[in-house]
């Protein structure tokens, strides 16, 4: 690189504006790619944009902290977006009222399945206790999962990574799985997406239908609350 160009790059690579713009460009590219391919589930916009950005960060030797200084402005909107979930909840209130029993039963069954099956499989393959503790809250939204992993003796950072990977996995498989089973109840589909794969599953559900999104949002919130309660009970009775 000649000198003016490299000087400019030193300035740009440290600027939050660069990485904020890169985040939006990557998302736009991922969305266009998905549209061109006919929106196959593997062309998940979260997965594709994150891989594009990671490749760029590795190629330019930029660390995550520098990237996040710009990307934090997008990340920050997760708060208001969570508040915004009240609107689809309000719109689908009649369907929510009709399905209260189904939601309660599915929540308990799904929440227990998520934690127990993951821990059992990893344990069978010899994963150590701190990894198991980080895996247990994998289906819960990241801020809660990190707290829970810590209180169980796990690693919050590992838990955050596993939560994101679980979210992407669920977002990719939910639509083909439900279509394969011929399930057309979008309340049930959305609820399952929210229990299994928290916010990223909820984001996927909103791409499919408003009803699915509303139920996914409720499921995400309830699963966070129930898993916290289960972990508390575990710590009291087994710890």
């Amino acid at each position: 690189m000649n000198e003016p160009v490299s000087t400019l790059w030193v300035y740009l690579s440290a600027s939050p504006l660069t990485w904020l713009t890169v985040t939006l460009l990557a998302y736009g590219a991922a969305d266009r790619l998905a549209a061109r391919l006919g929106r196959p589930p593997v062309a998940n916009t979260v997965l594709v944009s994150a891989m594009l950005i990671m490749a760029l960060l590795l190629a330019t030797g930029t660390d995550y902290g520098t990237y996040f200084a710009g990307a934090q402005f997008v990340h920050f909107l997760l708060g208001p977006a969570t508040v915004a979930l009240a609107v689809p909840l309000w719109r689908n209130l009649a369907a929510v009222r009709r399905n209260l029993l189904a939601m309660a039963a599915a929540l308990v069954a799904g929440s227990l399945t998520a934690a127990i099956s993951a821990v059992a499989i990893a344990w069978a393959f010899g994963a150590p206790a701190d990894v198991l503790a980080s895996l247990a809250p994998k289906s819960v939204t990241a801020p809660i999962a990190m707290e829970l992993a810590k209180s169980l003796g796990g690693l919050p950072a590992l838990a955050a990574g596993l939560v994101i990977l679980t979210g992407i996995t669920g977002a990719i498989v939910v639509t083909p799985l439900m279509n394969l089973l011929g399930i057309r109840n979008y309340a049930a589909r959305g609820f399952a997406a929210g229990v299994a794969s928290h916010g990223i599953g909820t984001a996927r559900a909103f791409q499919v239908s408003d009803t699915a999104g509303a139920f996914a949002g409720i499921a995400m919130g309830l699963n966070g609350a129930l898993t916290s309660l289960l972990v508390l009970l575990w710590l009291v009775f087994a710890g």
Partner: peptide, 30 residues
């Protein structure tokens, strides 16, 4: 909403070492 999860998803790169150490059982479990 997907857009808002992109910065956190890029953060997975920080845990590459620990994720790859237990790669297979973790991936299978997930």
């Amino acid at each position: 909403l997907s857009l808002l999860f992109v910065p956190a998803a890029v953060g997975v790169m920080q845990y590459g070492d620990i994720l790859s150490r237990y790669g297979f059982p973790l991936l299978l479990a997930l």
